[in-house]
Design a protein around this nucleic acid. Structure first.
Length: 594
DNA sequence: GCCGTTTTCGGCCCGACTGTTTTCAGTCG
C-alpha cells in the first residue's frame, strides 16, 4: 500500500460522504487527514505498521484505525460500504461545473439518474428543471458542462503525458532491432494540449519492432497493426501511433511526423521553389522528363523519379533547403522559416540555465510540504535560490496568511538562511489582487518582503475592461514584482478570465513588472503564443512552478519547454540570473528601474 | 471526524456569485 493510494482512498471517502449529505466537517476531516498523510516523507507502509500515525496532526483515532486496516488487509470496509450506497456514475456529476454534492444527490434520489448519459437525457426532456432548486438555466448549464467534458476527453495535457512519453521512447530504444527513435507530433513540438502521441523509429526489422509495440504492457486496444505503421489505444484512452522506417528514411519521416502541417507545407513550397521535392520519404532533386539523346521517339522518353538528397538527420534536411536548424518547438510556421533563412533562430532557453525560482507554497497556506522540505528539495535540484510565496489572507480557502503569520514566516526564513551555504530562501507572498485592483496587504508590509507575486484568485466573472483595469492597477504598485498566472486558465477545465493581454503586456513593459510563466501543467499561463511579442517589448519572463509539494518543483522543466515554444532565450528569463544578480534585479524593480 | 490556555462538547474558513427564489441554498475559490 503506497501513500498515494491511501491518500486517494481518504479523498474518495470524503467525496462520498459529501454525496451522502453527511456533516460537512466530517468529510473535511477526511480531506485534512489525506493532506496530512500526503505531506509525510517517511515510507507510508512502515510508518503505519510501526504505529507512528499517533501524533500526526489531523489524523485521529477513527481515521488511524482505517489506515491500519488498509495497510493490514489492503481493503477499507468503510469505503466499500460507502461505495455500495451510490451508483459509481453519480460521482462524475461533481465534475460538471455548478453541480455539487447536494444537487448530485437530488438528481440520483428524485429522478433515479445513475450516470452522465441519464443526466443528459433528463435535461433534454426538461425533467431536471422541474425539481425544486433547479431551473431551465441549470439544465442549460449541465448540458453545456457535459458537452465540454465530452469534447475535452479527446485531449490531454502536455505536462500529464511527459512521463508516459519518455517511458514509451525508452522501451522502444531498448528493443534490439531499433536504431533510432523519437517522439514526433505536437508532443515533440511542446504543444500544451495534445490529442495523441506519435512515435517514429528506424529499424532493419520493422515487423519485430511492431510486434513488441502492440503487445506492450499498457496497450488496451490495437486499432491498426501493420508492418510499418500501427495505432493503439493506451490505458487511459490515449491514442498512440508508431511509424517504423528503414534508417536512411528516418530523418525525413521524423520531420514529416513532427509537423506542424503548416510548417511542412511551407518547407515543401520552399523545396519546390528550389527545384526540389520534400515528402515523408525524402528530399529529392526535381523529377524531370529526360529525352534520350538523338531520339524524338516518345517511347524513348525515360521518366526519372528524381534523385534523393542524402540527409543523415533533420539538420541536414534544413541545411539542404538553405535553412538553419529549426528546433521542434518553433515549427508552427510563425516566422521560424524566415528566421532560419537569415540565421536568426535564437539559442533557446535550456532547463539547465535556471538558477532559482519564485512562487512556491508551503504548509503555511495550502502547500503539502514544509518550508524546510521545500528548501532541501530546491537545493537537491541544484537551485541557488527559492522564493516562498504563500497565499495572502483573502484566499481563505487556501488558508492564506495574515500580516502576523507573514511576519512569522519571514523570521523563520531569516533563521533558516543563516544555516545555508550557497543557497538562499527569498520571502515573498502571492498577494491577492482584490476586486478593485487594490492588493491584499499594505505597501509597508509588501515592502518588508523580498518580492511580491500578485495574482487574481476570485471574481472571474467580470468584463474584460474591468479585469484589465484591475490587474493594471495592481501592476502599477511598485512593490508588485511579478504578475502571477495572468489569465487564470486551467487547461481542459476552465477558460481564461476575460482580460486584454496586449494592455497587460504594455503595462508590464512600462512598469518593469515581470510576467510569470506558471509551469503548473494545468496552467502553463501565460500562454506561449504571447511570449515572442512580449519579449520584443522588453517584458521579462519568470518561470515558476507554483509548487504545492516538493515533487512539483520539477514543473519548471515543463515551463522551460513552453518558454522555448515562445522563442525565449536565457536573457529573457529572470530566473536564469545568479542569486547576486537576481537580488539586484529585485532592488532595481522597487527603485522604479527595469 | 478532529481538536483542545474555550479540554470531552461545540466549534470547525469566509465571502461572492448564480440561479433560484421572494430571503436563500448551493457552489466555488
Amino acid at each position: 500500500m503506497t501513500k498515494e493510494e491511501a491518500v486517494e482512498k481518504l479523498e474518495e471517502i470524503a467525496t462520498l460522504l459529501d454525496l451522502r449529505g453527511e456533516n460537512p466537517f466530517k468529510s473535511r476531516a477526511y480531506r485534512t487527514a489525506a493532506r496530512a498523510l500526503d505531506s509525510l516523507s517517511e515510507d507510508f507502509d512502515t510508518f503505519v505498521r510501526e504505529g507512528k500515525l499517533e501524533g500526526v496532526k489531523g489524523i485521529g483515532e477513527g481515521i488511524r484505525a482505517k489506515l491500519q486496516e488498509l495497510v493490514a488487509t489492503g481493503h477499507l470496509s468503510y469505503l466499500e460500504e460507502l461505495k455500495g450506497s451510490f451508483p459509481a456514475g453519480v460521482v462524475a456529476f461533481l465534475d460538471i461545473p455548478g453541480l455539487g454534492p447536494k444537487k448530485a444527490k437530488i438528481l440520483w434520489e428524485k429522478l433515479g439518474i445513475r450516470d452522465l448519459a441519464g443526466l443528459e437525457s433528463a435535461c433534454r426532456s426538461h425533467r431536471v428543471g422541474k425539481l425544486p432548486g433547479f431551473g431551465s438555466k441549470t439544465e442549460e448549464n449541465i448540458l453545456s458542462g457535459i458537452e465540454q467534458r465530452r469534447s475535452y476527453a479527446a485531449y490531454h495535457r502536455y505536462g500529464d503525458l511527459i512521463g508516459l512519453a519518455e517511458q514509451l521512447v525508452e522501451e522502444l530504444r531498448a528493443h534490439p532491432e531499433v536504431v533510432r527513435v523519437s517522439m514526433g507530433g505536437s508532443f515533440r513540438r511542446g504543444k500544451e494540449i495534445v490529442r495523441d502521441l506519435d512515435l517514429v523509429c528506424s529499424s532493419p526489422k520493422p515487423a519485430a519492432v511492431m510486434e513488441g509495440f502492440v503487445s506492450a504492457t499498457g496497450v488496451r486496444r490495437v486499432v491498426n497493426h501493420g508492418e510499418t505503421k500501427s495505432s493503439v489505444v493506451l490505458e487511459g484512452g490515449l491514442a498512440c501511433d508508431l511509424r517504423v522506417v528503414p534508417d536512411e528514411d528516418y530523418p525525413y519521416a521524423l520531420l514529416h511526423f513532427t509537423g506542424s502541417k503548416e510548417h511542412n507545407i511551407a518547407l515543401r513550397q520552399r523545396a519546390i521553389a528550389q527545384g526540389k521535392k520534400l515528402s515523408e520519404w525524402g528530399l529529392f532533386r526535381e523529377a524531370r522528363i529526360r529525352f534520350s539523346e538523338g531520339s524524338e521517339d516518345a517511347a524513348a522518353q525515360e521518366k526519372e523519379s528524381g534523385e534523393r538528397i542524402r540527409c543523415r538527420d533533420e539538420a541536414e534536411i534544413y541545411e539542404n533547403l538553405g535553412l538553419a536548424y529549426i528546433p521542434p518547438e518553433l515549427r508552427e510556421n510563425l516566422g521560424e522559416i524566415e528566421a532560419a533563412e537569415s540565421n536568426q533562430i535564437p539559442r533557446l532557453l535550456e532547463w539547465t540555465d535556471l538558477r532559482g525560482t519564485f512562487h512556491c507554497h508551503t504548509t503555511a497556506s495550502d502547500g503539502h510540504s514544509t518550508l524546510v522540505a521545500m528548501a532541501e528539495a530546491a537545493q537537491a535540484l541544484g537551485l541557488e535560490y527559492l522564493g516562498i510565496a504563500d497565499h495572502s489572507k483573502s484566499s481563505f480557502q487556501a488558508n492564506g496568511l495574515d500580516e502576523e503569520r507573514v511576519a512569522c514566516q519571514q523570521e523563520e526564513i531569516r533563521k533558516l538562511n543563516g544555516t545555508f551555504r550557497g543557497f538562499r530562501l527569498l520571502s515573498g507572498t502571492e498577494c491577492d489582487i482584490l476586486r478593485d485592483g487594490r492588493l491584499d496587504f499594505s505597501d509597508s508590509l509588501l515592502a518588508s518582503l523580498d518580492y511580491v507575486v500578485a495574482s487574481v484568485h476570485a471574481g472571474f466573472s467580470t468584463s474584460e475592461e474591468e479585469m484589465t483595469r484591475r490587474i493594471i492597477r495592481a501592476m502599477e504598485n511598485p512593490y508588485v514584482t511579478m504578475l502571477g498566472h495572468p489569465t487564470g486558465r486551467l487547461l481542459l477545465m476552465r477558460k481564461p478570465y476575460p482580460v486584454n493581454l496586449e494592455k497587460i503586456i504594455d503595462c508590464a513593459a512600462e512598469t518593469g513588472t515581470w510576467i510569470e510563466l506558471n509551469a503548473q501543467p494545468l496552467r502553463l499561463d501565460l500562454d506561449w503564443r504571447w511570449w515572442h511579442a512580449a519579449r520584443d517589448k522588453g517584458v521579462r519572463c519568470v518561470i515558476n512552478p507554483d509548487a504545492h509539494h516538493t515533487r512539483e518543483l520539477g514543473f519548471v522543466r515543463i515551463g522551460v519547454n513552453i518558454a522555448r515554444k515562445g522563442w525565449l532565450r536565457r536573457e529573457d528569463v529572470i530566473n536564469t540570473l545568479t542569486l547576486k544578480l537576481v537580488e539586484r534585479a529585485l532592488r532595481n524593480k522597487r527603485g522604479g528601474g527595469g
